[in-house]
Design a binder for these strands. Structure first.
Lengths: 292, 292
DNA sequence: TTGAAAGCGCTAACAC
DNA sequence: GTGTTAGCGCTTTCAA
């Protein structure tokens, strides 16, 4: 078999047999490791069970999501793992009708189709805001890329706004744009924000990469971080600990999400019951937020 | 069709028809966007032709590579895209025997199976060394993660060593470890390097993420960058322009590699002839290397 | 324990 | 054009 370089035809195997060995994975972005680390851990764990990853990337486009989910289902996957719990109705319908185990990743805040592994993003946003409030910030902004279909970012913003209201502070100021989250966008939005709202003393960034640009702009504007303005990110990029000042952030355990998703997939294939697994995020305090 | 949520069975389609609509993609890492951006661009471009990505990640393990290539081929892909041109002999044999178009990405320096889209890594390493030499560095080191099976990193190191010899300088000093390239590794290797070789005045880092840790360590050691030591990275991470000092680096055009790979796949499926496409890397000069 | 045969859901080739 | 059918390479079932 090895000498002749025989390679079995798994299309035939999948068509004939009861399972297809394909796991469909639908992400909303592959852009700088937002979900690449989840994918990494997921696919490595699935490998042990000889399951192959069929990948689709919606790029936050709901029409694409419908097309891609249909496309993924057409391979008769053993299971589908998908980012988020907020989908176009047709996607939910297709996934439900497929009869295939569905694992929703990253977010658990909403209607789960089958099984979910992720965080409570509203709680994350609230934790970010409370961290800044505890450290004496009085006037907060939420800054970054916010795509129409990034329900997670919207939940974090909502959580932050609620925490601010609960603390009796001024309303959260929004500085967002529906573009990709690059440092230049953070740089631009920070300048715009401070010219309109010079009193801002705490900025919640929607991603670490955005925060990098914010730090750069603040340095350029002569603002001291954290003395004048505190900055917190989201995502714990590897670079965050190497910024000057080092960036406080929230660390989602992407590897754990990938591993737990793989476990959930295997469990559901074995007909074990659905579950929802809520993972905590660690708030990593560094130099960009004031000390108490 | 839409009302009944009918989803065609593409396993059957692939088995029956002449093409299978699957493109196998084999990467060596999914770790912080080293190849995630290529994957992103590649899969988006393939989407337009209704081709689906079947993903495999070898994590720099040659045994895995054999297993995974066999696994990918068992889906009878329309084409296979794979990182690098240096594979275990069995992989080359399997890919050749498959009769499927093979596009090797990222590196073009060696024996190409069919079609390649990538950079000349030896030239990249030489350019990094020459950049430091031009700016007055006399004693250079190559620092970072170097996996046994990362032929590209080895080519860049070789290119740098050759440029240094050509310039009549002392031999390149190596400070490498076969672990994943994280900032903490860069931090550790920089401290170790300078205690053994205090005269080093230029460091070529094998990745930007490694360089971030190097910059952090140098700051902590009281070394000025670039006055005492110049530092150059590789990869152009989004964070690099936001470091203090901002990091000089080499920018491979990952998006272009992904797009050109997709084009090459479509061309080869259409039986157009094999080609090798060499892409240039831009050397991005920032503050971490001395000005002339 | 081993072997033969049906059939998975499509595509493509052929006949009409 | 439209309709029918063989067959892709396996898995599974059933017979020997």
């Amino acid at each position: 078999m090895d000498e002749l370089n025989y390679v079995p035809n798994r299309l035939a195997g999948g068509l004939s047999g009861t399972r297809s060995d394909i796991v469909g994975v639908v992400v909303t972005s592959l852009y700088h490791s937002e979900f690449a680390s989840i994918l990494d851990a997921l696919q490595s764990a699935l490998l042990k069970s000889n399951l192959q990853v069929m990948l689709a990337n919606t790029r936050y486009d709901p029409d694409q999501e419908v097309t891609l989910v249909r496309s993924i289902l057409s391979w008769r996957p053993a299971a589908v793992a998908i980012i988020g719990v907020d989908h176009p109705p047709k996607v939910t319908e297709l996934l439900r009708a497929s009869g295939v185990p569905i694992i929703e990743m990253w977010d658990i805040g909403g209607d789960v189709i089958d099984t979910a592994v992720g965080m409570d993003h509203t709680a994350v946003g609230a934790a970010q805001a409370r961290h800044l409030i505890e450290r004496g910030c009085k006037s907060l902004a939420f800054l970054g890329s916010m795509r129409d279909n990034d329900a997670r970012a919207q939940k974090r913003a909502t959580g932050a706004a609620q925490a601010i209201t609960a603390a009796g502070l001024n309303d959260l100021v929004f500085a967002t744009r529906p573009e990709a989250g690059k440092p230049d966008l953070g740089d631009h939005l920070a300048r715009e924000l401070l010219s309109k709202h010079p009193g801002i003393d705490g900025i919640i960034c929607n991603s670490d990469v955005i925060a990098f640009g914010v730090l750069r702009a603040l340095k350029d504007l002569g603002k001291r971080v954290p003395e004048d303005i505190s900055v917190i990110g989201f995502g714990d990029s590897e670079a965050s600990s190497c910024m000057t000042p080092s960036l406080s952030t929230v660390r989602p355990d992407r590897q754990r999400i990938g591993e737990k998703t793989a476990e959930a997939i295997l469990a559901r294939i074995d007909d074990e019951p659905s579950t929802t697994m809520t993972l905590d995020c660690e708030l990593v305090t560094r130099d960009s937020t004031r000390s108490i």
